[in-house]
Simulated assay, not measured.
Amino acid sequence: MTWTAADEVAILWAEHSGLTFPDGMGGLDAPSGESLAALDTYMAGCIQAYLVSGTLDARRHRILRSCAEQLGGVRPQLSGKDSDYVSRLLKMAELIDTNVTAPS
């Protein structure tokens, strides 16, 4: 069986959505000043929209990219489950980004 990006995102999302936001990331902010909890929430909305429709509109695509960029910058500071949590979000964002063509 060949897996599509949507299949992989669905599997990763099923794993991810059962988790709680890591305690170790609760008070952390991205360099932009945005809280990691807010970035997590924004990404979750974009991922769910992708899973429902199979694509993202331009606005959600920009939000997903921006959040992924900010979380990617913070990931080296994280370890253990915190790093795994962010890595899963980044993997889903990568899969979606490479398989969605949204107008600028």
Results as ranks from 00 to 15, higher is better:
residue 24 G to H: 01
residue 54 G to D: 13
residue 1 M to D: 07
residue 90 L to T: 05
residue 92 M to A: 11
residue 56 L to K: 05
residue 64 L to N: 07
residue 79 S to P: 09
residue 2 T to Q: 12
residue 40 D to G: 07
residue 78 L to M: 15
residue 59 R to S: 12
residue 11 I to D: 14
residue 74 V to I: 10
residue 76 P to Y: 06
residue 52 V to E: 15
residue 100 V to C: 12
residue 57 D to I: 00
residue 39 L to T: 09
residue 94 E to I: 00
residue 70 Q to P: 03
residue 34 E to T: 06
residue 47 I to D: 04
residue 21 F to L: 07
residue 64 L to G: 04
residue 96 I to Y: 14
residue 37 A to M: 09
residue 28 L to D: 04
residue 55 T to I: 03
residue 13 W to P: 09
residue 53 S to P: 02
residue 14 A to Q: 13
residue 89 L to Y: 14
residue 4 T to L: 09
residue 85 Y to E: 11
residue 29 D to Q: 05
residue 42 Y to K: 08
residue 21 F to H: 11
residue 18 G to C: 10
residue 14 A to L: 08
residue 36 L to R: 08
residue 58 A to V: 02
residue 57 D to M: 07
residue 9 V to T: 10
residue 42 Y to C: 01
residue 96 I to S: 11
residue 53 S to C: 03
residue 26 G to I: 01
residue 75 R to H: 00
residue 102 A to N: 04
residue 14 A to I: 02
residue 48 Q to N: 14
residue 104 S to E: 14
residue 57 D to V: 00
residue 68 A to C: 08
residue 53 S to I: 01
residue 24 G to C: 05
residue 1 M to R: 10
residue 91 K to P: 03
residue 49 A to L: 10
residue 88 R to D: 07
residue 32 S to V: 04
residue 9 V to P: 05
residue 92 M to T: 12
residue 65 R to Y: 06
residue 35 S to L: 03
residue 70 Q to V: 03
residue 65 R to N: 07
residue 30 A to W: 02
residue 38 A to L: 11
residue 5 A to K: 01
residue 77 Q to R: 10
residue 65 R to H: 09
residue 13 W to E: 03
residue 64 L to Q: 06
residue 18 G to E: 14
residue 88 R to K: 15
residue 33 G to F: 05
residue 31 P to V: 07
residue 41 T to H: 06
residue 87 S to H: 10
residue 42 Y to R: 11
residue 86 V to N: 00
residue 20 T to Q: 15
residue 24 G to K: 09
residue 78 L to T: 02
residue 27 G to P: 05
residue 2 T to R: 13
residue 75 R to G: 02
residue 16 H to S: 01
residue 47 I to C: 06
residue 1 M to W: 07
residue 102 A to Y: 02
residue 102 A to S: 04
residue 58 A to M: 02
residue 27 G to W: 00
residue 40 D to K: 00
residue 79 S to F: 15
residue 97 D to C: 04
residue 15 E to S: 13
residue 37 A to F: 04
residue 66 S to H: 08
residue 53 S to N: 12
residue 27 G to L: 05
residue 90 L to I: 01
residue 86 V to M: 00
residue 89 L to R: 12
residue 77 Q to Y: 05
residue 69 E to V: 01
residue 55 T to Q: 11
residue 46 C to T: 05
residue 66 S to Y: 01
residue 81 K to F: 14
residue 73 G to A: 01
residue 87 S to N: 10
residue 101 T to G: 00
residue 24 G to A: 12
residue 46 C to N: 11
residue 72 G to V: 09
residue 102 A to R: 10
residue 22 P to S: 12
residue 70 Q to S: 06
residue 4 T to V: 00
residue 44 A to E: 13
residue 85 Y to G: 13
residue 16 H to R: 13
residue 75 R to A: 02
residue 98 T to C: 02
residue 81 K to W: 15
residue 72 G to C: 01
residue 53 S to G: 08
residue 65 R to G: 12
residue 90 L to Q: 02
residue 2 T to D: 14
residue 12 L to M: 00
residue 25 M to F: 07
residue 45 G to E: 13
residue 102 A to G: 05
